[in-house]
């Protein structure tokens, strides 16, 4: 162990060198480096304390603490001086911002929220339903009888060893809603659905739909069309137009496809809709002589692809962070 005066002299020496370096440092890197290396060197003296004679320890410690304080004060002073100079010269306004770690919501969440917000503004409540369903909710109550081609195993994901399947449409939530209590109902149900389609740029075996259902006294297809018009205008802007084309779905009658006209882009297919089929009301015990209703459904992926200019549906499930950072 060196003698106490020697240690103290070394500390003072070290401090003097460091202060000189700091006083001549320029902004940014150089100042930080000078300060940190001096702190490290002072830190090394700490080791000396361990082997120092007991009576010397407090003095060495005190000297080190004082030196550290002086050093930091000196660095702060230099930093202030530099920043005053910088301010006098004006900030380099071309400096880039420092990195900010931003996360993102998935584009499908974004679209789902827009759709649900628009429907909520029209008085629709939000309902959830399970992805694993029984045949009653996925088929029977939706007026899809045993022999119907839609029940073909090659068009559905039936589950092994249980009488359930992955729902092929969010219309199942219509049934669950109507079973939940007496009408009136006005709900929308966003969710995942599953159909064994071959995966390509516009198809995936898992996708998302939003279902809408309204049941009340005296509802007609005119209410459906009016509601859809308000919905699409809330969602896309006040200048879009609506068109119905006749179609077929087992659970609605009359049924129609909905097209929306975007100025400058023409007609775009949006989804299906119709009046709740009396057979559906019967399956869930709603008196169709008193109540009537309408339902509609649209695919979220298609909406999101159009909205964000995404050419391939597979981007949504790849979750490449370069995609997620761009699109939300």
């Amino acid at each position: 162990m060196e003698a106490l005066p020697d240690v103290l002299a070394q500390v003072a020496d070290c401090l003097a060198t460091a202060k000189e370096l700091i006083r001549t440092a320029d902004a940014g890197e150089s100042l930080a480096r000078a300060r940190n290396s001096a702190l490290a060197r002072l830190g090394a003296f700490m080791e000396l304390i361990k082997t120092a004679p007991r009576e010397d320890k407090p003095r060495i410690g005190a000297a080190l603490n004082a030196a550290k304080g002086e050093l930091l004060a000196c660095a702060a002073e230099r930093e202030a001086a530099l920043s005053a100079v910088a301010q006098a010269a004006g900030v380099d306004i071309t400096l880039p911002g420092s990195a900010l770690e931003q996360g993102s919501l998935h584009p499908l969440t974004n679209i789902e929220r827009r759709v649900v917000d628009a429907l909520r503004s029209l008085g629709f409540s939000v309902a959830d339903g399970p992805e694993v369903e029984d045949e009653f909710h996925n088929f029977i109550a939706l007026n899809i009888p045993e022999d119907h081609p839609a029940r073909d195993p090659s068009d559905n994901f039936y589950l092994k060893g249980v009488p359930w399947l992955l729902r092929s449409q969010t219309s199942t939530v219509q049934i669950r809603t109507m079973q939940s209590g007496p009408p009136p109902f006005r709900v929308c149900a966003p969710g995942r659905v599953f159909r064994p389609d071959e995966v390509d740029a516009t198809h995936h075996w898992m996708f998302h739909q939003v279902e809408g259902l309204a049941v009340d006294e005296g509802l007609s297809m005119a209410d459906l069309k009016g509601t859809l018009l308000l919905f699409f205008r809330t969602l896309f802007g006040n200048d879009v137009e609506l068109r119905l084309r006749a179609s077929f779905f087992p659970f609605t009658e009359p049924s129609a496809e909905v097209d929306v006209f975007f100025p400058g882009r023409g007609w775009v297919e949006m989804g299906g809709c119709g009046m709740v089929d009396p057979a559906v009301f019967e399956a869930v015990g709603v008196d169709s002589a008193r109540w009537s209703g309408f339902a509609f459904g649209l695919g979220l992926e298609r909406l999101a692809m159009r909205h964000f200019g995404v050419p391939d549906i597979r981007h949504f499930t790849d979750n490449d962070v370069r995609f997620l950072r761009q699109v939300h």
Binding site: L219, A222, D223, K225, G226
Partner: peptide, 10 residues
Amino acid sequence: IDKVPERLGM
């Protein structure tokens, strides 16, 4: 079917 009117009375 597009002759169905739009009613805004919900």
